[in-house]
Write a protein that binds this DNA or RNA. Structure first.
Length: 862
RNA sequence: GGAUGUUUAGCUCAGUUGGGAGAGCAUCGCCUUUACACGGCGGAGGUCAGAGGUUCGAGCCCUCUAACAUCCACCA
């Protein structure tokens, strides 16, 4: 079957994905094979996928397609994430735009709306997966809120609770006043903001003319002050410990106490202590059993215990309070500072540390599991390796994980409170007398369920066939930005609940930045939509670009030029296939070839091919897709297209050549190239594959080429390299001597090697008029000396003729230089012409000078 | 404050057992040659951040320095 002249990605890609999908090629389950399993990191159902998902999915799909071609039963399990806080924010915003809110429509109606949202975006995600061409097994698709996942979540929660690894407690948490929920520590993004440091007088009760100077960045929290703390070793404050001062915000008397925690060097050395609104103050408060009034509401407004500021927004309160304290003469100064301020990852609101009753996962014992595993033989291997350290360091110092969220969209916490006895029931099943109970209002952190993804998707907690066969996963692909959020938590939950690592290998990739190296963001509007790229250049080019541009674990810049370059490369492969199919017989059938009878040139390409297969396979096996593609690329361009295909033109015209062997070599090489490019760019690979003689129904059923030593021929390899070398030097000779590329030469070869079999190729590619073996120097000829071979060249061109031509060129260039000099020395031109024009002329002048010296050199050499 | 990464051609980046300095794009010259002008052939362009060290030999290993980036932790 002949290929079209041009590689048109639109035609190549159209309809292909559906065919694969319908044929069932994506479905795992061939028990006769060894398994290879992987899950997709479930994308959030909040919006369309971005290029970060594309790189993730490309690497995953390359891995899966490669493993399938290597003969594995590959499971690539898809699914989506309910993304609690993110999705709820979107649905809330949509409700708001309709003039309503979840509080108006109620929990049940809200859930309906959220599910509708989920359906809409899941459909979009499916479209994008199809566009990307990923071979996910749709028969096993999951959703983090589906019945199975919910069962797993309840099981995990109840078990951890019963083992004392989940507890409910009052602690300082990060509060998002916009989403009105607690957050975990890693959902807080610290940014450097311009802030102010306010210095206040806290007058002594016994003598209000004297005071302590206290600095704070958050004056509104002064309503929650319960004491002043100084360091017991601080000489300045020796006498004030035990005395009382007046809080200038609410005029209440609070004691001065001493504690080592206070840094003598920092600020004034005296610190106000607000136990309910600062994690460190909380620890001091607990130590001294201090009162800990909460002074803020869930929406960031001040509580009734803040006097006239009650109901005021926290920042408004700060402003007003400042004025009032100043009016009373208790404001000393305001200093501008830059400091790190925590923002909510989702809403960007300034996070408020606040005392709150929440559910926590106790991290120490779980972290220990991970650290022990990573110190053992069976540790999870990261690619690149250095990310293992990132995981370990985080596990060593992570705090307890706040898992309750004051949201509606998510897994409801499986805890029930008895209406009358106040008894607490933690249970995977609802109590039978539900009317007497109230379920905890909160839902769990999204990552609580994501952490179970590698096993809950396979049927756990039931011991299903899939779980038995496909768990643990062979590999996990994700970005480094998500190691803490996700990878770490999958590891400890997996270890705790399945007693096995959830996956053996973790492949870490960087993020895709814009062409200037900036992070892509909505506010900058610099995002690259993968769908646009696919529409312009095809998904095969996008995938090739994403998989081969970056080194593992490093960020990459999006580059349209490189996507184009990928497209050109694929076009090159396409055309090489086209050439081969045009040159083999219409009714070609593979048959046994006599390896001994193969032409040298055919042996040569087979040899290079085998080495390429070896190198590419090695790189693919260690997930080094950039290395693999470079190996293949060099082979395709240098050995295959530039050299071998050109040489084959000679063989195919030669009556006496062993053409069966050439057909064999051409097809074997082509098929191997197609198979090696296939994981990267499966659509074009399939199209070409289906044009080959005796192909299977789809390239998805074909196997990966394997290295076979019988196709390595050392002597042919050497001869091929000599041939290449000779041709290159003859070409260079022509350029240096101002000869046309197709100038006819008389060549003589002097060598101890037997090179007769490659003479025809030398002749053809150096446009030799004649080619003669010789064992002595040739008079009057130039010589090209190579290792083991000397070529004598009679270029047939009269020296006088060459000289005349060069002299003519010389005259032309000299006159150009004269013209240029005249122009550049003309004061009118220099002062009046546009700068660009002048620069251009200067440039031309330089070029002419260069050319002049080259011509002079050549004339000298005659 | 702690940790990690980066620094190679004009630009963006490869370079994994230490022995050839490379690719894409850009640039210059020649070429419409029946696979491909989304092309072919050839050229120019690099004290591989800097300084030391190990080695017969260092872009690659060790030490220090500088710049940039990222992550973690943060003191009111």
């Amino acid at each position: 079957m002949a290929l079209e002249k041009k590689y048109d990605f639109r035609e190549v890609e159209a309809g292909r994905y559906d065919k694969w999908k319908k044929a069932g090629y994506f479905t795992a389950g061939d028990k006769s094979k060894q398994k290879f399993s992987m899950v997709i990191p479930p994308p959030n159902v909040t919006g369309k996928l971005h290029i970060g998902h594309s790189i993730d999915n490309t690497i995953q799909d390359i891995t899966c397609r490669y493993k399938k071609a290597k003969g594995f039963d590959v499971l690539f399990l898809p699914g989506v994430d309910h993304a609690g806080i993110a999705t709820q924010a979107k649905v809330d915003a949509k409700l708001a735009s309709e003039g309503t809110s979840r509080f108006i429509i109620g929990r049940e109606e809200f859930m309906k709306r959220a599910y509708a949202w989920k359906e809409e975006y899941t459909a979009k995600i499916h479209e994008q997966w199809a566009k990307m061409g990923i071979m996910v097994d749709y028969t096993r698709e999951r959703f983090t809120l589906d019945a199975g996942c919910s069962k797993a979540v309840n099981e995990v929660f109840v078990t951890l609770y019963n083992k004392g690894l989940i507890y409910r407690g009052q602690k300082i948490v990060n509060w998002d006043p916009v989403m009105k929920t607690a957050l975990s520590n890693i959902e807080v993004i610290y940014k450097e903001d311009d802030g102010k440091f306010y210095y206040f007088k806290y007058p002594f009760v016994e003598d209000p003319t004297k005071f302590l100077t206290i600095a704070t960045t958050r004056p509104e929290t002064m309503f929650g002050d319960s004491c002043i703390v100084v360091n017991p070793k601080d000489e300045r404050y020796k006498d004030v410990v035990g005395k009382k001062v007046i809080n200038p915000a609410n005029h209440e008397e609070i004691p001065v106490i001493a504690d080592e925690y206070v840094d003598i060097e920092f600020g004034t050395g005296a610190m106000k202590c607000t136990p309910a609104h600062d994690p460190n103050d909380w620890i001091i408060g607990q130590k001294y059993n201090l009162p800990h009034p909460i002074i803020m509401n869930v929406d960031g407004t001040m509580k009734e215990n803040c006097g006239k500021y009650a109901g005021m927004d926290r920042f408004k309160c700060r402003e007003e309070l400042l004025k009032d304290i100043d009016a009373e003469g208790n404001l000393i100064k305001i200093e501008n500072i830059k400091h790190q301020v925590g923002h909510s990852e989702r809403s960007d609101a300034v996070v408020e540390p606040i005392l709150s009753m929440q559910w926590f996962v106790k991290m120490k014992p779980l972290a220990k599991l991970v650290l022990e595993q990573q110190a053992s033989e069976g540790k999870i291997k990261f690619f690149p390796e250095r990310f293992e350290k990132v995981l370990e360091q985080w596990m060593e110092k992570c705090d307890d994980w706040c898992v309750s969220r004051q949201l509606w969209w998510g897994h409801r916490i499986p805890v029930y409170y008895h209406k009358t006895t106040k008894e607490i029931l933690v249970s995977a099943q609802k109590p039978t007398d539900m009317e007497n109970w109230e379920q905890d209002e909160d839902v769990l952190d999204t990552w609580f369920s994501s952490a179970l993804w590698p096993f809950e998707t396979l049927g756990w907690p039931d011991n299903t066939d899939d779980f038995k066969r496909y768990y643990p996963l062979d590999c996990m692909v994700t970005g480094y930005d998500i190691i803490f959020f996700w990878v770490a938590r999958m590891v400890f939950q997996g270890l705790y609940f399945t007693k096995k690592v959830p996956f053996k290998n973790v492949i870490i990739h960087g993020i895709v930045r814009d062409s200037q190296g900036r992070k892509m963001s909505k506010s900058l509007g610099n995002g690259i939509d993968p769908i646009d790229v696919i529409n312009n250049y095809g998904v095969d080019s996008l995938r090739y670009f994403l998989a081969t541009t970056a080194s593992p674990g490093l960020d990459m810049r999006y580059s349209e030029e490189k996507v184009k370059a990928a497209n050109n490369y694929l076009n090159k492969i396409w055309n090489s296939a086209r050439y081969i199919l045009m040159n083999i017989p219409e009714d070609y059938k593979a048959q046994k070839v006599d390896l001994n009878k193969l032409e040298t040139i055919d042996k040569f390409i087979l040899t290079k091919l085998e080495r390429t297969i070896k190198n590419v396979t090695k790189a693919m096996d260690s997930y080094e897709y950039g290395v693999a593609s470079t190996n293949l690329y060099n082979f395709v361009y240098d050995d295959f297209c530039s050299f071998y295909l050109e040489m084959s033109k000679v063989t195919l015209k030669d009556e006496n050549a062993y053409k069966e062997g050439t057909y064999f070599a051409l097809l074997k090489t082509l098929q191997a190239i197609i198979m090696m490019i296939y994981p990267f760019s499966p659509f074009i690979a399939e199209e070409i594959y289906l044009s080959l003689p005796e192909h299977k129904e789809s390239i998805m059923l074909e196997s990966y080429p394997v290295y076979e030593i019988e196709y390595e021929f050392d002597e042919a390899d050497r001869k091929g390299d000599i041939l290449k070398n000779i041709i290159e030097h003859v070409r260079e000779y022509k350029v240096k001597n101002s000869l046309a590329p197709n100038a006819q030469l008389e060549l003589f070869i002097k060598t101890n090697l037997d090179l007769k079999d490659i003479y025809p190729y030398i002749s053809r590619f150096s446009f030799a008029k004649s080619l003669t073996a010789t064992d002595k120097e040739i008079e009057g000829a130039s010589s090209i000396i190579l290792d083991n071979v000397t070529i004598f060249v009679k270029d047939g061109i009269d020296k006088g003729e060459l000289k005349a031509r060069l002299e003519k060129e010389l005259t032309q260039v000299q006159s150009e230089i004269k013209r240029s000099e005249g122009l550049l020395n003309n004061p009118n031109f220099v002062s009046k012409a546009p700068k660009a024009k002048i620069d251009l002329e200067k440039q031309k002048y330089e070029n002419y000078k260069d050319k002049l010296s080259q011509i002079l050199l050549k004339l000298k050499n005659i």
